[in-house]
Design a protein around this nucleic acid. Sequence first.
DNA 1: CTGTTAGCGCTTTCAT
DNA 2: ATGAAAGCGCTAACAG
Lengths: 356, 356
Amino acid sequence: MTAVGGSTRTDERKGCGRLTGSARPTSRDVARAAGVSQATVSLVLGGKWHGRVSERTAHAVRDAAGRLGYRPNLAARNLRLGRTRTALMVVPALTNDYFARVYTGAARVAAEHGFGVVLYPSPAGVGPARDPFGSAQAAIDGVIASSMAADALAGIGGGELPLVMLDSGPAAPGGPPTVDLAVADGMRQVVRHLVGLGHRRIAHVAADIDAWTFRVRTATVAAELAGVPGAVLTSERCPLDVDAARAAALRALRPPAGQARPTALLCDGDLLAAGACKAARSLGLRLPGDLSVTGFDDFALAAALDPELTSVRLPAEDVGARGMTALLALLDGEAVDSVELPVDLVVRDSTAPPAV
Amino acid sequence: MTAVGGSTRTDERKGCGRLTGSARPTSRDVARAAGVSQATVSLVLGGKWHGRVSERTAHAVRDAAGRLGYRPNLAARNLRLGRTRTALMVVPALTNDYFARVYTGAARVAAEHGFGVVLYPSPAGVGPARDPFGSAQAAIDGVIASSMAADALAGIGGGELPLVMLDSGPAAPGGPPTVDLAVADGMRQVVRHLVGLGHRRIAHVAADIDAWTFRVRTATVAAELAGVPGAVLTSERCPLDVDAARAAALRALRPPAGQARPTALLCDGDLLAAGACKAARSLGLRLPGDLSVTGFDDFALAAALDPELTSVRLPAEDVGARGMTALLALLDGEAVDSVELPVDLVVRDSTAPPAV
DNA sequence: CTGTTAGCGCTTTCAT
DNA sequence: ATGAAAGCGCTAACAG
């Protein structure tokens, strides 16, 4: 497929699309134009000519390169160097503030080091974009993978590449380094905020996903509340979407006869919190007077809701940045420590003392 | 930077990271293992051996490749072929449902043709990821660009590459092909819905962005309402974020003395609509009884709000898919027509007849 | 049917 | 301070 036309000889330059006629100049063209050798061009343009090429010659080379609009051929460079200066980032979905920001952070650090980042939304999502190694993706020097997409790594040749895991929990000894969020601490902050406000009957609307980050949230809520005299914790699990959350919240808000209704809904994510708010309103409960609701993630959504959501802000860009930094270090052969990034409770308008 | 270690000779295989010891096998290794020539390996693995290589030999080759875990070196292939089978997609921001879905659609079609898609969030956003051509990004065969990121194309060498524009309005003659959304029709549907409900005083909360898609929205609202006897259109512009929209909606809802308040807020996007809802509520107005609000885009946000937003659904994945299809055709040297994709009004709970 | 051969454009010794 | 030459791994033309 995609036959470009019958270009069979070398001099029949690849004539696809909007070529202006003159083909892309090579380093040899630059060399000729500057009256030097290809090696000199490479040295100068590669920035390692100091003391090896005269200032005058260097200038001539740069001038010629500029005039010709020369751009090095990456494929050739990659082939020669055996490295591509490109990292692959495996994420579960892009339809998501969090990963978009993680990517942004990673791409920023990558760019600072002359690296690129290509995204691989793992097949868990809708579009089963094929194995990027099998297909014609750019070749890759290393991989940054979200643990929520960890399974996607199985089929990938990634096992042979330097790897950094994101949000996958404490690094296994000998395993890849990780960049984690202090989700336990985040949940602890939420619980304490709620308890401090006076809440004792709390329902946890939990994401029904088997990943470290969610297991920790559940465990922490339970542990933290266990230390509070008189506290009653209930819990509903549901998939990570608004409507499922609405249903779960409805269940939580209609406890069996004889049990009092919870005064706060502690949700595993802002999306879930949005569903919880809708459930509350559909029951005629007012926020935060009749019911407090908390989110987690602090998506843009948190501030778009009404009332604005008390939530836990995740330093998503930092996660990406640290992940890329770690990968870069790995590629340099350095030892890499796993890190845990702090998170912060952002108190807004969806929480208040319970009604008396 | 990133010195992998002093590997200077060919036989000192690149020993970075977690290599198991045996280096990556080349097609020559496969050839040797199968007892054939490199050319035969290439033919077999390239799938163009029918009638040229014996079934037995082909099998031997595939077997050897499998045993060795052979994966072709993309850099070498790209260099040889002069193509990379990779497209660049330039978008204004990833923190956004719409572009995430556009990407998904493009990536799906790309994968079906053995292409990859790499994202370039244009510098307009927060992270000024550098020029992907200057930096060490993978080389690129063509570009798909959102018009909202059109300026980013200037600095990029993209002018020399096959290009498809997204949401940039009718293709200029001789310009790149475009994939557009029928935004005018979408707005028309919104206006008619509102007018049909009985609304006559309508305020347009418009995005303060100079792009075709928004100019069309404004023009269409005005034109459509001009044909309705007794209709009164006011308008407030604001940046594309919730809080700015809240302020703008507030202005729209407090008309100068002597003028009646609009009964509907027609917003250029779901984000703006979210802000409008908050403004309405802060004024004690109830939705949709006292005020109708409409969105545009139908983000996940539309259904997360309460009441759920009447909005215009954009076939984002199709935009990406058609864009990629067009680019692929362009690369094949085929003529490519611009297309306009239909959009649909989704009526939910944020609109109702105006109060009497 | 299969092997030999010639590069793609670049970086890097090594020789001058 | 500069140039000549080799070769990264692959594919495609051509000969056998």
